[in-house]
Structure formats: structure tokens, C-alpha cells
Design a protein around this nucleic acid. Sequence first.
DNA 1: GAGTCACGTGACCACTTAGTCATATTATAG
DNA 2: CTATAATATGACTAAGTGGTCACGTGACTC
Lengths: 223, 223
Amino acid sequence: MVKPTFLNLPEDKRQRIIDVAVEEFAGKPYSKASLSNIVSRAGIAKGSMYQYFEDKKDLYSYLLDMAVEEKMAYIKEGMEPAGDFFASLEQAVYASTRFSLDHPKLGQVLANAMDPMGEEVLQEFFSQSKQTAMDWFENMIVLGQQEGTVRRGFNTRLMAHLLYSTIGFGLMEYFLEAQNVNMHEFITNPQLAKGFTEDAIRDTVREIMDFVRGGLEAKGWGK
Amino acid sequence: MVKPTFLNLPEDKRQRIIDVAVEEFAGKPYSKASLSNIVSRAGIAKGSMYQYFEDKKDLYSYLLDMAVEEKMAYIKEGMEPAGDFFASLEQAVYASTRFSLDHPKLGQVLANAMDPMGEEVLQEFFSQSKQTAMDWFENMIVLGQQEGTVRRGFNTRLMAHLLYSTIGFGLMEYFLEAQNVNMHEFITNPQLAKGFTEDAIRDTVREIMDFVRGGLEAKGWGK
DNA sequence: GAGTCACGTGACCACTTAGTCATATTATAG
DNA sequence: CTATAATATGACTAAGTGGTCACGTGACTC
């Protein structure tokens, strides 16, 4: 658990530590991320870090919670409760994409945590957040079936996984390839996010939704 | 480049080294995989490793080539040149799944290399094999459009990414969750692969294909 | 001013890493 | 059997890791 000492820190110092730590954890796998590196770049002593957090895992966990909270805020804000399944999903995909482009480093920390190949140390975080995301998708699908917009007769859990990976991985990687950059360049160069216009994002999300709609829509609905 | 000394090794010794190394690289990120660990478990001296390979990257590259070759063999074997786009894709998905279940460790080494969040050292391997896979998917889509089974009017590159992540990630993760194991347990316990019956695999692949077909099929085709 | 307590510090510890190299062992050839 | 070349070896190096701890520093209280 994060220690009170950290929360009582002056705003700017706290933020500087967070920024540096997020950058470190975004750029390398957990075990390779270096505390020595973080403290030196943040301009604090090694020992101070251990006044703020129990250990490396504790710091990581704190950043992860931040990332989840921030992403949830994006998604919740864009949600229109009135829409049908596909409209809601499109909103969620759009919001999730916006989050990843607005906060690429934070988004990357989250993506690392979800990585199935993740390191054993992180399995607890991983399975927890992954499970939550999957439940959310599955729940949406079931609701869509109840409202009649989504066809029946398939394994909803399997479909939740497909939706998750389609949206979670495919989209971001397409954006990167389209701009001809890799993840590291994107993370370290904040300017690159400007390369994605609002229209391009909306168009891409719409194409994805066309694909998903075709795969899931009940007969008699849609254009 | 792998040194001739390694290739001249007695079959059993060579295989033992490969097995141990594959297991090591499958279980942790590249930078965390330990040569000291590999040599001790393979029962050889540290120095010997450097008679066989230039360095750590060289060993990794060798294993990666092996994995690609093996997976390609699976896919090529299952390919029936006569089938239409969806039949070919289903074959490829099935073969790819079989490969991952038959050789979970090798499959995991490959998956790590494709990981977009992969470490900077591996970008060369990553972008190369990823690009190749994406070209293959895009090419198939275009051929499908030419034969009339796949609808037109979408960004084929984006769709290749969606197909790739749907098939590459979603499927495997669903299998794991369905068996209630995580990737590490699956890798270290070869028995677990038996939990997936041939029928269950075929059914799951078919459901995925239903989803993909709905999203891509041209009007007037299909059931 | 004295005493107390939270916070800051960096030298230090035990450990691990990739990689080297002088030396020992083995195989080959004359 | 001897000489030569190929291979095997593991102690060693330099660098880096997460984490600790005895000691400073500064602020607040009485």
C-alpha cells in the first residue's frame, strides 16, 4: 500500500515522481524497469522511494490503479445510457482509443499489465484486471442479446475474448503502423499523437464497428 | 549467427540445450531470461554457450527461426489450395491453434517476439516477423475480394490487423481461461494441453469463423 | 532553546547478470 | 606416440539490481 508520506508530498514533487515512474514502467517489462533509474531521474534518493512505497511491486500497483481509474473516467464520460449495444460499444472503443492516444505512457503501463505473457510476479494484477474487462464485455453482449440487437447461439465468453483482443490490440497497432512508428517511439515522442486527427480516429473506429456488427448483429437489424 | 560447433554437437546434447533454452525464453521476457540458468539446467559450462552462439541475442534469434519454421510447417501442411478465402482462413486458424497447443513453449517464444510492447532490443525481430504476418493476412483478404467472397470498401490493412489480433490473441486466451489456467501453468505443465479435445478446438475455430465471416463476407454468399 | 519526530539520504549489502579467458580436456592426424 | 587443432570449462569481471539502515536535516511542540 502506498504510504501516507507520498500522498503528503508537495504536488509538483509527487507528480514528477509519478511521471518518471510511469515512463520507466511503460518502456520496459516490469522486471527490467529500474528503481535506481527512476530515483536518479526524479532527483530523489533511493531510500526516499522506500518511504513512499513498500517496494517495487507496491509502486507498480499504485501506477496501475491510476491508469485504470483514468481509463475508466474516459469510458464513463463517453457513455450514453440510451444507446443500443453497438452504439455503446462504439462509444467505448472510441473513448478507449482516445485514452491511449492522450496518455500513451499510462496506456502502455496498462497494456503491459494485461499482457498474457506477463511475468509471473504480475499474474495477480493481470488476472484481476483482465477478468474485470472480460466480464464487462460479456455482460454487454448478453444485454445486447436481451435487447435483440445481438444474435444468439454463440459462446458469449469466447466472443468477449474476441472483442477484447480485436479492440484492445488490433486498433492500437494499426494506428502505429499507419504512422510508421513503433511503440517505443510513440511513447517517448509525445508529438506523434498529433498525427492522428479526430476524423481519422472516428473513421477507423467506425470501420471496426462495421466488422464487429457484421459478426454479431441479429438478422433484421442494421442498415 | 549460430556457430558450426553447435550444429556438430551430438543430437541429444543439442536437443537438450534447445529444450532448456526454449523453456527459459518462453517463461520470461527476453531481458529476464538467464543464460546462467540455461547452462546450469542444460548441464554445460557457461563458456560452452559462447562456443555455440555469438551472444544471447544470437541464441534467441536461432530459437525464433526454429519457431517460425515449425509454425509455417503446420500452416502449410493444412492448406488446401482449392478452398475459398474463408475455408483457407479456417484452415490457417486451426493449424495455428494446433501448433500452439502441440508446442506451447515454442509458441510462446514466438508470441513474445510479436509482442508490440516487446523490449527495444527485439524490435528488429518483432517488426520483421510482424510485418510478414500482416502482409500474409492482407494478401489473403485481397485475394478473397478478387474471388468475390469478401466484401470491398474497407481498409484492408486495418482489417488484417483486426484478423491478426482476433486470431492470434483472442483464441489462445479463451482456451486458457476455459481451462482455468494461466499461461505459465500451461507452459510448465505439458499435460494441460490434453484438456483440449479435437472437437472442442474445431468448434471454437468454427465459432470464430462465424464471427469473421459475418464481418467480412460479401452479400449473396454464405449459408 | 531543548526535545521529539517525520522525512531525506546515499553508502552499502547480497545477489544476479552477460560475457571473457586462461587452462584443461578431448579428438584428429601424421 | 606425438603434435596439433577443436572444444569444454568455470572462476572471474564489471555492471546492475532491489532493498536496508545508520545517520542528517528540518520542522514543530513544549
